[in-house]
Simulated assay, not measured.
Amino acid sequence: MRINTLSIVIPCFNEQDNIKILFEELKKVLNDFDFVVEMIFVDDGSKDGTFGEIEKIADVDNRVMGISFSRNFGHQIALLAGMEKAKGDAVVTMDGDLQHPPEVIPEMIQQYNQGYDIVNTKRIDGVSTSLFKRKTSKWFYALINKLSDVRVEPNSADFRLMSRETVDAFLKIKEQDRFTRGLISWIGFKQTFVAYTSQPRYSGKTSYTLKKMLVLAVNGITSMSSKPLRISLYLGLLFFVTGIVYSIFILYNFFKGVNVEGWTSILITILILGGVQLFIMSIIGEYVSRIFNETKARPLYLVKKETGQKS
């Protein structure tokens, strides 16, 4: 499978100080190849001068295209928007903070040339990665692989190379609440992994706060599995059977004339049941909210401005 055109899709959020450095690093890696390269920077509603930096680069290099969203729609949607614009025979997606090293791209192309449709990457945590992030990442992948119908490789990243065929297949998926790593596993095709060492951000602070990580985790679990709903059913059955057994115990002692003092046990039971009911309702609520989002049929993103080459 020969590459005639390679597209690089780069979602950006408040990456003003990283754009130029990333562009220079990409040029060092890609200038040695004999195929056409296009770079698509997607500004996901940045509050700084990110899009201004993209415009400057696009003015001096006709391989660069920039898209600016009307607001922040999220990293997963920015990935999708860039892939919709990409024209390449193969498409690489990567972050704009230099934590995804451009020098890995040639190795990904090698794997593609060996017949793989999708070349994923697996992150090896560097010394800058906190213990908290390592542990929460490990727990997240363990949980999602227990619940999901498809396997998501631990420490996988949205840094990958995809063939034109797999990009077109991916773009047929129009879900609002997206978990790209899970969807890539779901679409199948011949896939492999290459490892890379995670680098510290060149500049700025990560936009992936704990809150955003939790939202991504919930999206990942609810988009890839209905098992939490089944767990709710099993919990409900467990407490229903427990309630029946406890009722029989109370009635048995009542007819024997044994006075059972149960204020404490009743209070504990009510609190536990109330907590379980709220937990189950929240799970159901997550799935209902996803249905609600899908039925609204709003566009996944809105573009405010574009620069560079046009489709």
Rank of each mutant, 00 (worst) to 15 (best):
N4P: 05
T5E: 11
L6N: 03
I8L: 06
I10K: 02
P11T: 00
E15V: 00
Q16C: 05
F23V: 10
V29R: 09
D32L: 10
F33G: 04
V36H: 14
I40F: 00
I40D: 01
V42P: 04
G45Q: 01
S46L: 05
G49I: 02
G49Y: 02
F51D: 00
G52P: 10
G52T: 14
K56W: 07
N62L: 14
M65G: 09
M65E: 03
M65C: 10
G66K: 02
S68N: 06
F69E: 03
L79E: 03
L79N: 09
L80K: 04
A81F: 00
G82V: 03
A86G: 00
A90D: 01
D95E: 04
L98G: 05
L98E: 05
Q99G: 08
H100M: 04
H100F: 11
H100R: 10
I105Q: 01
M108P: 02
G115K: 09
D117N: 09
D117W: 02
I118Q: 06
R123H: 04
G126K: 02
S128G: 15
S128Q: 13
S130I: 00
L131G: 00
K138A: 13
N145A: 10
V152E: 14
A157I: 04
R160H: 15
M162G: 07
E165P: 04
D168I: 06
D168W: 02
K172G: 05
E175W: 08
Q176I: 12
D177S: 09
T180Y: 06
T180L: 03
G182L: 12
K190W: 12
F193L: 14
Y196W: 09
P200A: 04
R201I: 07
S203D: 00
G204P: 03
T209Y: 00
L210A: 06
K211V: 01
M213A: 02
V215G: 03
A217H: 06
G220S: 12
I221K: 13
S223G: 09
K227E: 11
L229I: 12
Y234K: 07
L235W: 00
G236R: 03
F240S: 08
V241R: 01
V241L: 07
V241A: 04
G243V: 09
Y246T: 14
Y246P: 12
S247L: 15
S247M: 15
I248W: 11
I250V: 12
I250R: 11
F254D: 03
E261K: 08
G262W: 07
T264W: 11
S265F: 11
S265H: 09
I268H: 11
I270K: 11
I272D: 08
V276P: 07
F279Q: 08
M281V: 10
I283R: 08
I284W: 14
Y287K: 10
S289F: 14
I291M: 15
E294F: 05
K296T: 06
K296L: 04
A297L: 11
R298A: 10
P299K: 07
T307P: 11
G308M: 11
